[in-house]
Amino acid sequence: MGIDIRKIDEIIERYDKSEESLLAILQDFQHTFRYVPEEGMKRVSEVLGVPESKIYGVGTFYKALSLKPVGRHTCKVCTGTACHLKGAHTLTDIIGKELGVEPGGTTKDGRFTLQTVNCVGACALAPVVMVDDEDYYEGSSPQDVLKNLRKYK
């Protein structure tokens, strides 16, 4: 996959050249490229002077970072306590069945990545589904959630 090295540099440019910026830079990669590309980690290593091994370690440790491209949209099913008690597990199964993927997987057409996430702090909507970190849906009637998901192209 071709990654624009200029975009990588643009992102790195935004931050101080210290190890402290590492996580933020990798998160910006994630937002821009929908994953953290190897080329990006190599470049960060050169610019920040942090060994690649450490950068890769950070890349594999944090859940917000993915080393493989994720879908155009992310569908996050909250599995916080309130959501668990109100059937988040079932909701995940139902959405997974609709999209044809397991949690963590990306649909073949690259439209959706399905994830289960820790509490998103919207317990009043439990079980809650969050799309693209912006749109929240109350999941008590799964069929309504599926209807909403179909809006995302």
Binding site: S18, E19, E20, S21, L22, L23, A24, L26, Q27, V50, K54, G57, V58, F61, Y62, K63, A64, L65, V117, N118
Partner: peptide, 25 residues
């Protein structure tokens, strides 16, 4: 402002500090 990386353990004080430093939490 430091954004966390999606790791519950970073709520633990010493892990949080490592994470701010740009390291594994």
């Amino acid at each position: 402002i430091t954004r966390g990386g999606g790791a519950f353990v970073c709520g633990e004080s010493s892990a949080l500090m490592r994470s701010i430093e740009g390291k594994v939490g």
